[in-house]
């Protein structure tokens, strides 16, 4: 074929080109395609894993937040309950204290009244005694004569009773 000659086709050159290309293919496959694809795949896997991890972490975070909220709500509710209870207790104890205080006050009042009564009675009797003495003395002076002690006392008492 003259065309092949004109195109410069030569079996030896073709073989040389074939070997050349085969070596090139081998090298690219061995040192280019293989490692680079591996690196790319690794990186892709890594990125995917990273994204997955991030998503998981996010989910976990949300979960934890929810839990936190729950716990917080629980705590708040409990606190509320405790406060309520405490208030109830306080209310109760207050009433009790008031009651006790009232009772005590009443007791003190009664005591005081009694004491005052007693004192008054004492004072009264003392005053009565003194007054009767006074009256006796005065009457003695006025009347000038000492009456019979018994009669005298009766008379004074009668008068004092009239005063009273």
């Amino acid at each position: 074929m003259e065309l092949f000659e004109a195109l410069g086709l030569n079996v030896k050159i073709l073989l040389a080109q074939l070997v050349n290309f085969a070596v090139l293919l081998f090298v690219i496959y061995k040192f280019g395609y293989g490692p680079i694809m591996k690196v790319l795949n690794d990186r892709q896997n890594k990125i995917e894993k990273g994204i997955k991890d991030a998503n998981e972490a996010k989910e976990k975070l949300v979960e934890i937040e929810n839990k936190e909220k729950e716990v917080l709500a629980e705590a708040r509710r409990e606190a509320q309950e405790i406060i309520k209870k405490a208030q109830a207790i306080a209310e109760e104890s207050k009433a009790e204290v008031v009651e006790i205080t009232k009772q005590e006050a009443a007791k003190i009042m009664a005591d005081t009244k009694k004491k005052i009564e007693q004192e008054r009675a004492q004072i009264m009797s003392e005053v009565k005694g003194e007054i009767s003495e006074l009256i006796i003395t005065a009457t003695e002076k006025i009347i000038g004569k000492k009456m019979d002690a018994q009669e005298d006392k009766r008379l004074v008492e009668e008068i004092v009773g009239g005063i009273k």
Partner: peptide, 16 residues
């Protein structure tokens, strides 16, 4: 073609 192959191979080895 040899020169170009060598250039590509060198580049690939460099990358590797």
């Amino acid at each position: 073609s040899f020169v170009i192959s060598v250039v590509i191979i060198a580049a690939m080895l460099l990358v590797k």
